[in-house]
């Protein structure tokens, strides 16, 4: 299996951010991590990427413990895009995307044809070919987010971890990113884990969903089973119903905005 973890626990000082988290990914699977703010989604992704040490349990890529691999070896197999990454303003899109090839070229090897092809593909997949020479400062928020996704794609890793890739994007770009995620999984067999806030997007795009609350795994399974569990309402402390939009399609979560009273003028 490309990516697994079992009983993974992470603490920041005394605060336990993740306890006993388990996950096992099939090749080409899309997994959504959902949960309230501070439920441990980002922590789980960072622990999977080997960026923070776990106090218990371990993450494995193809059966090899992430903690035992070098950063370069991990980066060849796993690309991780953190939430709101920062790059120097004067860096261009092309320069950013080129950095994604570092795990392949290392310190000395020059960029070969394969590297240039990967960069071109990454730019094209995110619709940035025409903007390659622009600096990140000159881009809109959506374009900048796509540039980062493009850099992660240039790594050509079989596993892609995304931390809220659609936040701060308008609905058009949100759909575009989700569509790209879907294509990567189905056409290239990329295994994808992403933290995401929009429950309906999570249900629509993912094969399976992990629901986290206070660092603990509350649910692990198919979107449909989640919609029938009543856990979403309970975990997020909202009222709402799952509505069937069309037969055979994933249900849509319709949240009740009880605090709003729009009847009066």
């Amino acid at each position: 299996m490309p990516l697994t973890c079992s009983h993974l626990s992470v603490s920041y000082g005394r605060r336990r951010a993740l306890s006993g988290f388990s996950l096992s990914m099939e090749k080409g699977e899309i997994r959504a991590l959902i949960g309230p703010n501070g439920s441990g989604k980002s922590t789980a992704l960072q622990a999977l990427a080997g960026l923070i040490a776990s106090s218990e349990g371990r993450a494995e890529i193809e059966g090899v413990s992430v903690a035992s691999m070098s950063r370069r070896a991990i980066a060849k197999k796993l690309a991780f895009l953190p939430q709101q990454p920062v790059a120097p303003d004067e860096m261009t899109v092309a320069q950013l995307v080129r950095q994604g090839r570092f795990p392949h070229v290392g310190l000395f090897r020059s960029y070969g044809r394969k590297d240039e092809e990967a960069i071109a593909w990454a730019l094209e997949s995110t619709g940035l070919t025409g903007l390659a020479g622009r600096t990140l400062q000159e881009l809109s928020g959506g374009e900048r987010q796509r540039a980062w996704i493009s850099a992660a794609l240039a790594q050509e890793a079989a596993i892609l971890l995304l931390d809220e890739p659609t936040s701060f994007l308008d609905i058009g770009y949100q759909v575009e990113v989700l569509d790209l995620v879907h294509r990567l999984s189905r056409e290239r067999g990329v295994t994808i884990v992403m933290a995401i806030h929009d429950i309906n997007q999570a249900i629509a795009v993912s094969d399976r969903i992990s629901l986290l609350e206070k660092g603990e795994l509350r649910f692990d399974g198919a979107p449909k089973a989640l919609s029938e569990s009543g856990l979403v309402e309970k975990t997020f402390r909202v009222k709402g119903t799952f509505v069937e939009v069309a037969p055979g399609k994933p249900p849509h979560f319709d949240v009740e905005l009880t605090k709003l009273n729009r009847s009066g003028p």
Partner: peptide
């Protein structure tokens, strides 16, 4: 976090 994700020690 970004530098390490790109494979840098």
């Amino acid at each position: 976090a970004v530098a390490r994700s790109f494979g840098l020690s």
